[in-house]
Amino acid sequence: MSSTLLPKPQMRGLLGKRLRFHIVGALIASLGSAVLYKYGVAEPRKRAYADFYKNYDSMKDFEAMREAGVFESVQPKDS
């Protein structure tokens, strides 16, 4: 009759064992997310800003906006 009994559940150390498993999983997931964000979002964004400002002429942009009448306090140049 003793062979048909269910084994006793583990009572000691169960919380520690489960926490260890979940902390390792959470650490791996968070590091993976950080790496994906860095190389999927941050690096392409930095590269795009660098490419934009490589040939950006702020005075040319200002003159174009002034001619378009964007600024109220700056009068367009008389040509």
Rank of each mutant, 00 (worst) to 15 (best):
K60F: 13
L14Y: 10
A48C: 07
L5P: 00
D78N: 14
Y49M: 04
V74Q: 15
L15G: 02
E67Q: 12
Q75G: 06
S73N: 14
K38C: 03
L6V: 09
K46R: 10
G69N: 11
F62G: 05
G13I: 06
L31R: 02
L19I: 09
A26C: 05
P9I: 05
E43M: 12
L14V: 14
M59C: 11
D78V: 12
V41D: 03
R18S: 09
P9Y: 06
L5D: 11
R45A: 12
A26F: 09
G40C: 04
M65Q: 13
A34P: 01
G32W: 01
K8V: 02
F62R: 12
A26W: 09
A48E: 08
P44I: 01
L19A: 13
V24N: 00
F52T: 07
I28F: 03
V41Y: 05
S58G: 12
R18C: 10
E63Q: 15
L27P: 00
P9W: 05
L5E: 13
V41M: 09
K17P: 01
L5S: 10
D78S: 12
A64E: 06
G13V: 07
H22R: 11
A64C: 09
V35L: 05
A29Y: 03
V24H: 00
A34H: 02
K38E: 04
E67D: 09
F62E: 13
M65T: 06
G69I: 12
G25H: 06
Y53D: 02
Y39N: 03
K8A: 05
A34W: 11
A50F: 07
G16H: 14
P44G: 01
G25W: 04
Y49N: 04
G40I: 03
S58F: 11
K54R: 12
K46P: 00
A64K: 15
L19V: 15
D78P: 00
M1F: 15
P76T: 07
F21C: 10
I28L: 08
R45H: 09
E63L: 08
D51S: 11
G16A: 12
K38T: 02
A68L: 11
K46Y: 07
R66E: 03
V41P: 00
V70R: 05
P9S: 04
K17G: 08
Y56I: 01
S3G: 06
S30E: 03
R20I: 01
Y53H: 04
K17I: 08
Y49V: 00
I28Q: 02
T4W: 03
I23R: 10
